[in-house]
Design a binder for these strands. Structure first.
Lengths: 148, 148
DNA sequence: TTACTCCTTCCCACCGTGGCAAGGTCAAGC
DNA sequence: GCTTGACCTTGCCACGGTGGGAAGGAGTAA
């Protein structure tokens, strides 16, 4: 199987397959006489694994660890879980950050007259830096995500 | 005021000040006889504006628009609000994506025996791609963010 | 003068992805 | 055989935003 077919079968672009090879995430593919990369079903399986892990937001570095565990029959499921939960923590931290931004912005926007006058609490906040005082109280924070 | 002082006063690193100048986000600073960049209080104010906008997650491109509106006395507060709410939409979309990832991962992790045995639903999912079937039902989705 | 801090420009790195260009290969059709 | 078109190869450039560091000039204080 050539790279194009492996790409179509795995959902990983040819660019990224070459990139993963170059950076050592996957082993170098065998080559045909003409120098074309040749892939097996097993290689495609690995690529699909990578693709799904990317879809779940794992970084390439984390995927390296996941692949190692995947290929290790002696692995402990505990180790996988730790890795996954660390990733969940990172995601949660980012979500919390973004929710704080959303809350602040929505609060500012609510106080905006939203018309053709120039006065605007959003710009005022950016210019004067009051948003420590202005941010929504914590009990409103989790209402925000429902909107997006 | 030299770049170091402007940086300290605004919270924007000297690296980034030069970068913003180079890319045209801020106007080129005047120079001293020796070629040092010279900043006024007004410049620092602009840098603070940029800094706060970055803290709220606006991209540099969006900040360009915000600065234009800020400098335009004819602006309509409506236009600012539109910009801000577009940004909120983007943030919400990303939050939703990440929450979906979190929900899937937590669901998989819950079913993990979390011990020294190799069998692991997380790796199994990545290898076999069941997570369409496995993801938490939507009504559980928003429980996730509370944990992080 | 020396020593130290600050400034200048320039290049490199990250991460993951895409685009483009120049050239080789392969299979199908004429 | 030859042409065409799809596919492959490598290599370079770009994005966004940030930091690191080198090499050299400028300012300041002892």
């Amino acid at each position: 199987m050539n790279i194009g077919q492996a790409s179509a079968a795995s959902g990983v672009s040819t660019k990224m397959i070459r990139y993963y090879e170059r950076t050592g995430l996957i082993k170098s593919a065998d080559r045909s006489a003409a120098g074309y990369r040749v892939y097996t079903k097993s290689d495609v399986h690995t690529l699909q694994f990578i693709r799904r892990a990317r879809d779940l937001g794992f970084s390439v570095a984390q995927i390296e660890d996941l692949l190692t565990l995947w290929n290790n029959r002696e692995r402990a499921s505990h180790d996988v879980k730790v890795l996954a939960m660390e990733h969940v923590e990172q995601l949660c931290a980012k979500v919390a950050e973004m929710e704080a931004m959303i809350a602040t912005l929505k609060h500012l926007a609510e106080n905006c007259t939203d018309d053709d006058r120039p006065d605007c609490p959003i710009l005022k906040d950016l210019a004067e830096g009051r948003h420590g005082e202005c941010a929504s109280p914590p009990e409103n924070r989790f209402g925000v995500a429902r909107v997006g």
